[in-house]
């Protein structure tokens, strides 16, 4: 119920931001549309905590800039590798065990890894095993240190109290 309400608020918010026309007719159409979509999605069974983790905490807000910085750093690194004529790459597959308790946390980690160029998650299973393709050995070692994993777990820890594993 709470999830449905959150979704409704988010959808209507998006409608208002996107529409830019605030005649009574359009706003009411918007409200009706959002309501209809929420109902439909509820029938489809895709309204839950997992789909819309709205309860952002300050820890999440601190994670995003860190991730952005990581992405920028690895982008520069990758650009350097690609542009240098020798292309110093040594692709490898590594496995790592994630410490997140929920699927959502795991997916956050996996997507963060993929989002960072030069590492791509190839497999992710609910028990927390990730297979990652890394472009070079030092990148792989960096990832294996588990900095990202720890940070995601910390973010997750702050919201984990309010959600149970839906897997």
């Amino acid at each position: 119920m709470k999830a449905a309400f959150n979704l409704l608020v988010a959808l209507f918010g998006m409608w208002l931001l996107w529409s830019g026309h605030y005649t009574p007719l359009l706003v009411s159409i918007g409200l009706v549309s959002c309501l209809g979509v929420v109902l439909l999605c509820q029938r489809m069974g895709i309204v839950d905590r997992e789909a819309l983790p709205l309860d952002l905490t300050w820890r999440t807000l601190r994670y995003i800039p860190w991730l952005a910085l990581e992405v920028v750093k690895s982008n520069l690194d990758l650009a350097r590798r690609v542009l240098s004529p020798r292309m110093p790459i040594s692709p490898q597959l590594i496995e790592l065990q994630a410490t997140q308790k929920t699927d959502l946390g795991l997916v956050t980690l996996a997507n963060s890894i993929t989002l960072t160029p030069s590492t791509v998650t190839i497999e992710a299973t609910s028990d927390g095993r990730l297979v990652v393709h890394a472009l070079a050995s030092d990148i792989a070692e960096d990832l294996l240190k588990g900095e990202m994993d720890r940070r995601v777990t910390r973010v997750e820890g702050s919201v984990a109290g309010t959600m149970e594993n839906t897997a």
């Binding site: 549309s33 439909l40 997916v107």
Partner: peptide
């Protein structure tokens, strides 16, 4: 799981966006 979560989140927004385009 990645696809499940990655696809679940956008679906309602896509629908609302469609209705926005509609109206």
């Amino acid at each position: 799981i990645i696809l499940r979560i990655g696809a679940k989140a956008p679906i309602p927004f896509i629908m609302v966006f469609a209705l926005y385009v509609q109206f």
